[in-house]
């Protein structure tokens, strides 16, 4: 889920603040075991979500999935450890997820990636190259539609041979074509002299 066009107060808040607050809330939710406080926090989370004016259409599927999981948790936990305990666990999870949805639906994908890169920047000491990380992420996004197309093509072709449901007949060509795509792209990048290695590694 990504922020659709949103101009609420929450979408104007910097991603780092939202992320930090979400982390702090998630941890403190586990330290609270009073159902009254948790219920109050659930109401706060719902108020946050509503005040952020998110697109509720985007929330339908995640909420249905979450409700199904929570129902199972409620019943299992209720039978095992009592209904009060089960209610507390469900309240906690629901609150945490609603806060998480509020952040996800008011933060653009770019802002989120930028934040991750900031968080990961200390890894530079360990030899991680930020340019390579950025290249990997953007290239992966670019390749997803292509790989999806290849996957569907292979499945269709094998279906015509009566092998459509044979995972082996689908996966082998998919992996080989993925490797070919990778080789061709790497060659194209090399041929154009793309070099994202750090300056000190420049070949002469």
């Amino acid at each position: 889920m990504i922020a659709a066009k949103n101009t609420s107060w929450l979408s104007r808040t910097p991603a780092g603040w939202k992320f930090g607050t979400l982390l702090a809330i998630s941890i403190s939710l586990y330290l609270i075991s009073s159902w009254q406080v948790l219920l109050a926090l659930l109401l706060v989370s719902i108020a946050t979500l509503v005040s952020a004016r998110v697109d509720f259409k985007q929330l339908r599927m995640p909420l249905v999935t979450l409700a199904a999981i929570l129902a199972v948790v409620l019943i299992l936990l209720g039978i095992q450890t009592g209904w009060l305990n089960a209610t507390i666990a469900v309240l906690r999870l629901l609150t945490m997820c609603i806060f998480a949805y509020s952040v996800s639906l008011t933060t653009s994908f770019d802002a989120m990636l930028e934040l991750f890169q900031k968080v990961a920047s200390p890894l530079r000491v360990l030899g991680a190259n930020p340019a390579q990380i950025a290249l990997a992420l953007s290239m992966a996004i670019r390749f997803i539609p292509e790989l999806k197309r290849v996957y569907l093509e292979v499945r269709e072709a094998q279906h015509a041979r009566g092998l459509g449901n044979n995972p082996l007949a689908v996966s082998v060509p998919l992996v080989i074509r993925s490797l070919k795509i990778a080789d061709e792209t790497a060659e194209a990048l090399d041929a154009r002299g793309y070099d994202s290695a750090p300056a000190r590694h420049h070949r002469l």
Partner: peptide, 9 residues
Amino acid sequence: TVYVAVFAA
């Protein structure tokens, strides 16, 4: 990096 990206995709 290209291998990583293609397999992620």
